[in-house]
């Protein structure tokens, strides 16, 4: 039998913002949502893609020589990557001496990923662990569940960051092996949710309700990323907060300030970001305004960051 494999686009050690302690965050590639503001656009597509970082390129042309179907061309000293051309991209990127051209992701077996995770086990001894993020880790739930199970067996604290866009069975596959769950609730009104993320939110809200009634509820944190004009409206926050408070007013709810730096990766992929004119982070006063709305809607445990 082929060992199950997972497609990972980054395995970041010393992640200190994704859960308690010093953590290793595994970014799983592929996401069913298409949020207009996505922070990790290279995690959207569920297949390996070529990344081109012009800064590192020495324009030696080694990549072009490794191409069979003109997947890469150079005009006026500029490299163009034609990602749709049929090429053995692994071979092409392997020819690049400066790694300006590289694959954005790697397939891991459970053992390989465990070896990577175990590397920082000496640090996990003081409260850290592993966090699965993405993309959407639930899109590769069977693989993720296997790794989580092994982590738990070895005493490694486990955490997930998910959109909760998955069916109940899929969620149940990983839930038993999770010590902590961070889940997004981005937009409350379904039409708007669809407009900004390209999926409906009925399943997400149902999963939230399920989670917040489960025995894991103490270990669930619900988060709303504040995107100007999209999620960061008074009505939306009020809607989400009321919905959550009705389930459990003690829910841990977090409002994440808009981070304008998300745009940085888009250029490597020849993609466009949702703002032409990138807005700034919200001020402390504005954050307090949003917090107050959530509090007024009945939320008791709220964090703004």
């Amino acid at each position: 039998m082929m060992p199950s494999r997972g497609l990972v686009f980054d395995c970041k050690r010393f992640a200190t913002h994704d859960g308690s302690g010093i953590r290793t965050t595994v970014f799983m590639k592929g996401c069913p949502l298409r949020c207009a503001w996505c922070q990790n656009p290279e995690g959207l597509n569920a297949v390996p893609q070529v990344l081109y970082m012009e800064k590192n390129c020495i324009h030696c042309g080694s990549c072009m020589q490794a191409c069979r179907n003109n997947g890469i061309t150079m005009t006026a000293g500029q490299i163009q990557v034609h990602r749709s051309q049929p090429e053995n991209w692994k071979q092409v990127t392997d020819a690049c001496p400066s790694r300006a051209l590289r694959m954005d992701s790697t397939y891991y077996t459970v053992d390989e990923l465990m070896a990577e995770i175990r590397k920082d086990q000496p640090f996990f001894a003081y409260g850290g662990g592993v966090t699965f993020s993405g993309g959407e880790p639930l899109l590769q739930a069977p693989f993720v569940a296997e790794v989580l199970k092994q982590c738990q067996k070895e005493g490694i604290h486990t955490c997930i960051e998910t959109s909760l866009y998955a069916d109940r069975q899929t969620l149940d596959l990983v839930l038993p092996y999770l010590d902590e769950v961070y889940c997004d609730c981005k937009v409350y009104e379904d039409n708007e949710h669809f407009a900004y993320t390209h999926v409906h939110n009925d399943q997400i809200l149902a999963n939230l309700r399920y989670l917040l009634n489960s025995e894991k509820r103490e270990h669930v944190v619900v988060r709303t990323p504040l995107i100007p004009e999209m999620t960061a409206t008074d009505e939306n926050i009020r809607g989400i907060a009321s919905f959550l408070a009705a389930i459990d007013p003690e829910v841990h709810y977090e409002l994440l300030n808009y981070n304008p730096l998300a745009a940085s990766k888009y250029s490597y992929l020849d993609m466009e970001y949702c703002f032409d004119d990138n807005p700034k982070m919200y001020s402390a006063e504005k954050m307090e305004h949003f917090r107050q709305i959530a509090v007024n809607a009945g939320i008791k445990n709220i964090v703004i960051s």
Binding site: H17, K55, S267
Partner: peptide, 12 residues
């Protein structure tokens, strides 16, 4: 940076 940590020098 945003939801992740990046190498400063690789940023635009």
């Amino acid at each position: 940076v945003a939801g992740y940590t990046a190498y400063f020098t690789e940023l635009a």
